[in-house]
Nucleic acid binder design. Sequence first.
DNA 1: GAACTAAGAGTATCTTAGCCT
DNA 2: AGGCTAAGATACTCTTAGTTC
Lengths: 110, 110
Amino acid sequence: MEKFGDRLKRLRQNKKLYQKDLAQKLNISKSAIGMYERNEREPSFELLTKISDYFDVSISYLVDGKEHKKEEDQGDLFFFDMKGLTEEEIDDIKRHIDYVKWKAKQDRGE
Amino acid sequence: MEKFGDRLKRLRQNKKLYQKDLAQKLNISKSAIGMYERNEREPSFELLTKISDYFDVSISYLVDGKEHKKEEDQGDLFFFDMKGLTEEEIDDIKRHIDYVKWKAKQDRGE
DNA sequence: GAACTAAGAGTATCTTAGCCT
DNA sequence: AGGCTAAGATACTCTTAGTTC
């Protein structure tokens, strides 16, 4: 199951930063970043807020991976916020999802 | 400034519970609840998630008081059915979405 | 170079028991 | 009864220094 560290790592890598770089931004040691990403430590609320601000994601997303409240989240249904994206970019995502689904079927010999 | 403990206290009182009652629900000591409410301690992610589930509020609300998502934003929400996909395949999709979002920002000059 | 590991020091947290109102 | 405080024990976190790839 995906945890905080996995999401932090993905966010960092999407920004093309090294652990050292992010550590500087947040005023902590690079070793601490590594520990978070390996899910060996959990940051304080204060640092959590800094991370949330820096990557512009919600604290809910960081901590439990859910951007929204429970009622909206059910079973195999996933929701994504496409705010700020153009039609083309959203289509890009849709095509990728269709491709992954198609490939999943192939892999299982359906 | 209002903090986590203040919100926890309010949530508890709204449910007409004593610290002892909430402590039982969460399987911790009543003293710990008191310390949270007085902002003397911060709970682990695991407990934070339990609290979020129990009171049916987001973790963002608990930690920074911001409910982040509003009704008006629902238009940007897209739902996808991931039934039959493995965790790896879903992660693949998540990474792609993160990448598209990241690239969109780059294209518009940070 | 980038990321991971180890180790020690320093903090934070949790529970129990007792105290206040 | 309900909430707060003190205390010690436990557990966690952070940094530095060294290691691996």
